[in-house]
Computed example of a mutant assay.
Amino acid sequence: MMEKLPDILTDGDLRLRPLTAADLTVVTAHFNDIRITRWLAAVAQPFGPEAARELLAHGTYPGENLRVIEHHDRIVGGLCVGTSLWYWLAPEFWRQGLMRRALKLIITARFIGAAPPLTATAHVENTASRELLTGLGFSIFPAPRRMFFHSTQTSESCRDYVMAPEQWHLLHPLTFRAGNLSFRPARQQDTPALAQMLSTAGPGPWPETESLTGFIEEHRYRGSGQGLFVMSDDNRRNVGMALLTITGPQLCFLSEVEDIRHRVQVMDGLASILHTWS
C-alpha cells in the first residue's frame, strides 16, 4: 500500500491540499473544458455531478493522494499521486511554471520515505506535458502504447514515463533547515571539506580520512530519512556533517566553536523533522 502523503504542502504562493466537496464546482468547470480533458484519458465527458462525487471518493482511497493546487488562494488545477501520477491545470495558468513547482512538491514528499518508482503517461501530442516530465528527469519507456480517451471516444497513442527514487534524489537533492543551519546530501565533491571535519570527530561512526570517499557513497541519501548531509551556515560555509540513521543523528562539526554554537539547536530541529518523516 502506498504511503499517505502530508495533507498540506506549500511553496510560497503555491499550496497543495485535499479536494473537498466545496471545490467540486471549480473542478467540474475544469473537467468540462476540452483544452484540459483532451489530455486526460479517464475523465468522463460530460463531467457531471456523479462524476464529481466519484472523483471526491477517489481522493479517499488508500494510497491515492489527490490534491487541488491553489495559487494565491485560487484553485488552478490538481494532481494525484497513487498507483500512477496524473495532473491538470487551468489554461489561463499554463506556461507559468506552476505545475512544475507542484510536481516537485508532491514527488519530493513521496520519495522522502521508501516508495516504488512513479509512473506517468502523456498523450504523444501533449508536448507541454511530455516536456514537463522529461524536464523533471523522468525516463521515457521505449515503446508507445494506446489508451482509450473519453473526450474523443477513441484509442490514442501515449508514452509512459518513470521516475525512480534514487534518480529523483540525484536530480533534485533534498534540502532543509534544522536549527540555524541548512542541510543538503553529501557528494563526492565535498570530500576535502569533510576531511577537515574528521580531525575534530570524536567516537562514533566516522571513518578514517582515506576511507571517506567510500563512506560518502555508502551513506548517500536514498530516502527514508537516512544518509550523510553537509551542514552550512547562512554564509554558505560548510560547518559540519550529519549522519542520519534509524538510531538517530550523529553530528560532526568543523571546530569546537561551531559545535558549541550550533549543536543544541540542530539536534532540536532534527528531532522535529525526523518525527514528520517517520
Rank of each mutant, 00 (worst) to 15 (best):
M1V: 11
M2Y: 13
K4W: 03
P6E: 08
I8A: 08
L9V: 06
T10N: 07
T10K: 13
R15I: 09
R17E: 08
T20S: 14
D23I: 12
L24E: 11
T25R: 11
T28K: 01
T28M: 14
A29F: 00
H30R: 01
F31G: 03
D33I: 00
R35W: 03
R35M: 06
I36V: 15
R38V: 00
L40R: 09
L40A: 07
L40E: 03
A41V: 01
A42K: 04
V43I: 15
G48K: 04
P49M: 04
E50Q: 10
A52Q: 08
A52W: 12
E54C: 13
H58V: 00
H58I: 01
Y61G: 08
N65H: 07
R67A: 10
R67W: 05
R67S: 13
R67Y: 10
I69V: 15
D73Y: 00
R74E: 15
G77F: 12
C80G: 04
G82F: 03
W86D: 02
L89K: 05
P91H: 11
F93Y: 15
W94R: 03
Q96A: 07
M99P: 07
R100H: 10
A109R: 10
A109G: 11
F111Q: 07
G113R: 14
A115K: 00
A115E: 01
A115L: 02
L118F: 01
T119Q: 15
T119N: 13
A120K: 06
E125M: 08
T127P: 02
T127R: 05
A128D: 14
E131R: 13
L133N: 06
L136P: 03
F138Q: 11
S139N: 13
A143I: 03
A143C: 02
P144L: 02
F148L: 01
H150T: 01
H150N: 14
Q153I: 00
S155A: 13
E156N: 09
E156K: 06
C158M: 00
D160T: 01
D160R: 03
Q167L: 07
W168M: 03
W168K: 05
L174V: 04
L174I: 02
F176V: 07
R177S: 15
A178R: 06
N180P: 06
L181V: 14
S182V: 03
F183W: 10
R187K: 14
R187T: 15
Q189C: 10
P192S: 05
A193W: 09
A193V: 07
A193N: 11
Q196E: 15
S199N: 06
T200M: 05
G202T: 01
P203C: 00
G204Q: 11
P205F: 09
W206R: 13
E208C: 09
E210T: 14
S211Q: 15
L212W: 05
F215I: 02
F215R: 00
F215H: 03
I216Q: 02
H219I: 00
H219F: 13
R220A: 15
R222W: 08
G225T: 05
L228V: 02
V230K: 04
M231L: 15
S232T: 15
D234I: 05
V239F: 07
L244V: 06
T245Y: 04
T245D: 10
T247C: 12
P249K: 05
Q250H: 15
C252Y: 06
V257K: 14
E258I: 01
H262W: 10
G269Y: 10
S272M: 13
S272R: 14
L274S: 08
T276N: 09
W277G: 02
